[in-house]
Design a protein around this nucleic acid. Structure first.
Lengths: 172, 172
DNA sequence: TTGTATATATCGACGCTTAAAATATCAAAA
DNA sequence: TTTTGATATTTTAAGCGTCGATATATACAA
């Protein structure tokens, strides 16, 4: 049995101790939370629906954009490279869950959409997914969640500014 | 008292969704922050030191534990599977940055340690790494970072509880 | 028009990651 | 002792993900 990595008191966060900068500990705690949640959702999706997290994520993007999205749009929104989106899309097309249409405006581009079957499958999964997320955040009260939401907005702005200047210029 | 919502039995799903959608947005924002930061650090490590992020992370764990760590300890702390640790360790051993020692207590286990060269390499990288992290969080003031740190502690506890109870490995 | 630059997507090579199965060891009960 | 079950790690196969290179299409300038 593939023992899943279980977080305990000595997880990723222990990489930093008192001698490290507070910012480093903050980052490692952020990362630990994300890994914990992501690993749980991944295993739930697999156990309940036999789907991988990346495929679910791609379908989630399409569900939010019923008019369809170009490959590049998917790449940006999922924060992964274009080549990666090509591969995941290929898989979903083979499963009949999404389809590629030629863009009428730009012959270089495809428009990717959910098929009716894909939309139907996704909606059932999304319901369970949301329930899991609610459970994962359930130990915080509403005020705390609201504060966290606001602080993460600041972090996102801060990190985007810092990352944008350096060696990762992927901008539209 | 504000207007009372009218019960709509035929809309249970939609109601549940709009009720819990904030948690979903909170999770997606958390994920976006992590991806942004992680992608930036990954490309910086690659550009400046020609190393991958997983290898850096493994070395960071060993730096924190000079007595060395067993493979399973590394797996837990890095929150990845054991097979993954095997592969990354193999690479680092081949590069001379890490070594495997037989455990004197348990012949199944290895003790993994940084080599002197590995320790030296890591310290230079860690200095730059910490600088990048400080930059990424630099748009938040100290009070905000402190609040975020506290809220993430709550999230970690909450998520660990939810992930630990539910559809986890079934002990037979 | 021609040339150059930019944008869109795919491909191939390589490395990371998981899940599941295999191997070996340990520990303790029968 | 032998058996039983748990623990520690590796192995395998499939999928994810990046990077760099390529092919093609678009945009724009001279």
């Amino acid at each position: 049995m593939p023992k899943k990595p279980v977080a305990d008191v000595s997880d990723t966060e222990t990489r930093a101790t008192s001698e490290h900068a507070p910012d480093l500990r903050l980052w490692l705690r952020t990362l630990a939370c994300t890994n914990l949640i992501e690993n749980h959702i991944r295993s739930c999706l697999r156990a309940e629906f036999g789907i991988t997290l990346p495929r679910f994520d791609l379908m989630a993007q399409l569900e939010r954009s019923p008019q369809g999205l170009k490959m590049g749009e998917l790449s940006k929104r999922m924060m992964v490279t274009g080549g990666n989106v090509t591969g995941i899309t290929d898989q979903l097309v083979a499963e009949g869950l999404v389809l590629r249409e030629d863009s009428p405006k730009d012959r270089r581009a495809y428009i990717v959409k959910l098929t009716p079957q894909g939309r139907h499958s996704f909606r059932k999964m999304a319901e369970a997914h949301e329930k899991w997320v609610v459970e994962l955040f359930g130990g915080m009260d509403e005020k705390q969640r609201g504060q966290l939401y606001q602080l993460l907005a600041l972090l996102k702005t801060s990190a985007a500014a810092a990352a944008g200047n350096k060696p990762r210029p992927r901008r539209t």
